[in-house]
């Protein structure tokens, strides 16, 4: 015979026991905690080495089947020209697919601005790609969970589940997302996830003749990229958004957006 007191006790214990895994322990957290041994992919970008040739953009478009003529790209290169009078000029025509070969800045709408070489104080190139943020706002805002973070830190999009609302595109402070012109779903750089998962290098890294972009595993202390990030002086883009981006830059200047 069970007493009322015992019954209440079992109910309380049972409810608390059942609630514990739901409330206290987040299953994703438990899984992530177990898997400290796996890789956590990061990128190291050296702005001193980038010459703006655009080979990375070409390679990326081909590898990831982004229509060559479409005015969107998973990766791009920006050119910054700072004049002696302090004016900052910047552009990335066609995502720098064809490289920077002319001394004119693209102003959009077919307009350009000629640059007098003698007036330039400094100029440099900055390669951009998805930052695979530790705290990705794009994943946060997806209403159906079609975009998600893998345990090795890469943010992916499920083309079969994306509803095409564009909220993730709006939420990304880095402007890396766009709608794929063929699949009509959200699209972004995923560090060539199909390649890195098979032990290969991403297409852009292979295409870069100057070693300006390199992938690394921040969990591997012997990785050269990890050593540079840990020992060297690197910075990230737009830290103020709290996204905790995982692309590290060498030689980032304050004019870079």
């Amino acid at each position: 015979m069970i007493t009322r007191r015992d019954f209440l006790r079992y109910v309380v214990i049972g409810t608390a026991g059942a609630a514990a895994p739901l409330g206290l322990a987040n299953p994703a957290g438990v899984l992530a905690g177990k898997d400290l041994t796996g890789p956590r992919w990061v990128f190291l970008l050296d702005t001193f080495k980038c010459v703006g040739c655009g080979l990375c953009v070409k390679a990326c478009k081909t590898e990831n089947e982004i229509p060559y003529e479409a005015n969107v790209s998973r990766t791009w290169v920006e050119r910054y020209v700072i004049m002696k009078d302090g004016t900052v000029l910047a552009d990335t025509p066609k995502a720098a697919r064809d490289g920077f070969t002319r001394n004119v800045i693209d102003l959009g709408q077919g307009k350009t601005q000629a640059i007098v070489t003698e007036d330039i104080a400094k100029a440099f190139f900055v390669p951009k790609l998805c930052n695979q943020c530790e705290n990705p706002p794009c994943v946060q805002v997806c209403p159906v969970g079609a975009t998600y973070q893998t345990k090795d830190g890469v943010v992916l999009v499920d083309r079969k589940w994306c509803i095409g609302c564009g909220y993730c595109i709006m939420a990304c402070p880095y402007g890396v997302r766009f709608f794929h012109p063929v699949s009509h779903t959200a699209e972004k750089c995923n560090f060539c996830y199909h390649r890195i998962s098979a032990g290969l290098k991403p297409a852009c890294e292979l295409a870069c003749p100057f070693g300006a972009r390199r992938i690394g595993d921040i969990n591997d202390p012997d990785d050269e990229v990890t050593r540079i990030i840990k020992d060297g002086r690197v910075s990230v883009l737009r830290a103020e958004y709290g996204t905790n981006p995982r692309n590290y830059y060498i030689g980032l200047s304050e004019e870079v957006r």
Binding site: A70, S73, L107, M170, H184
Partner: peptide, 23 residues
């Protein structure tokens, strides 16, 4: 054509993937 490109006019420096996606 990319979604948004037909009604977006861009001026000065923008990231390449930026368009008026919410119309």
């Amino acid at each position: 054509m990319v979604h948004g490109e037909v009604w977006t006019l861009k001026e000065l420096f923008l990231f390449p993937n930026e368009y008026i996606y919410w119309s």
